[in-house]
Design a protein around this nucleic acid. Structure first.
Length: 258
DNA sequence: ATGGCTGCTTTGAGCAGA
């Protein structure tokens, strides 16, 4: 089982690249964020032609998440489309059970700046997500939580920690959320393996950030113990950030033994 | 040397992303 997460920053713009990437990478399940598309316009036919079933919840302009499931894995079951007991207009969560694995796809709010209402919303949202993950883990030992967390967990996940210190994505409160999720028993799959230094998953479109590798690692796949023992690799597909009209995020991919 | 983004919006300057 190959599981991936990718913030595509508009499925409208990125669909050709996504289809190419699916063909080249052949993941079994893909968690998408920032689809920015209403359900009625979701390109399910195009993705079906590429060999994937789509499950999604979206809206115009912002947010939107989807799960893509490769044909032959069987249908996704027990689909959830929001954090329970957290009134939220924004479409940031989809969860489903696929081939015995419970997959939670999160698009964590950005937070904008620490003095903004959006930062408060981010922390409230994350607290609700903590409760959701705890509940899911209780029901499903084979749990994966993947997505754009908008949290760089440690200084080594930041190209210039001094520049980013205390800034949104890197604050103590956000990093504590990440540790809270690990504290539930989840493992950061990326850190289960030796990794090259300065490996990131997001680079600003501006100021040549990508060629200078001025990035952050903010996209993650967390695995419950029962899946962590099956995990043989985690990598970030930096090549997907190259070329014409890339997303500003690169995909994260894990391999799980059967 | 400097500044160099992208996607979206009941189309066109402004917001948001991170």
């Amino acid at each position: 089982m190959k599981l991936a997460t990718w913030n595509v920053n508009s499925l409208n713009v990125r669909l050709p690249r996504l289809v190419d990437w699916l063909g080249a990478t052949r993941p079994d399940v893909v968690c998408l964020q920032e689809t920015k598309i209403v359900d009625a316009k979701f390109p399910r036919m195009e993705l079906a032609a590429a060999g994937y079933a789509s499950y999604f919840v979206g809206q115009n302009t912002y947010n939107g998440v989807a799960l893509l499931v490769r044909d032959g894995l069987g249908p996704a079951a027990d689909i959830a489309l929001a954090l329970p007991e957290f009134g939220d207009e924004q479409k940031r969560v989809i969860a489903a059970t696929v081939a015995g694995i419970r997959i939670v796809d999160l698009y964590v709010p950005n937070g904008q700046t620490v003095d903004s209402d959006k930062y408060r919303y981010k922390l409230d949202w994350c607290r609700a997500a903590t409760a959701f993950i705890a509940g899911e883990l209780g029901r499903h030992p084979s749990l994966a939580v993947a997505g754009d967390f908008n949290i760089a967990p440690e200084d080594r996940d930041v190209h210039d920690p001094d520049l980013w210190r205390g800034q949104v994505l890197c604050t103590d409160a956000e990093r504590q959320v990440f540790r809270d999720w690990l504290g539930l028993g989840m493992r950061d799959s990326f850190r289960m393996f030796p990794q090259p230094e300065k490996t990131f998953s997001w680079w600003d479109y501006r100021q040549l950030a990508f060629p200078k590798n001025h990035g952050l690692r903010i996209d993650h796949i967390l695995l419950a113990p029962a899946l962590a023992t099956r995990c043989t690799a985690c990598r970030i597909d930096r090549n997907a950030r190259k070329g014409e009209k890339p997303s500003d995020h690169a995909p994260v991919i894990v391999d799980l033994t059967d």
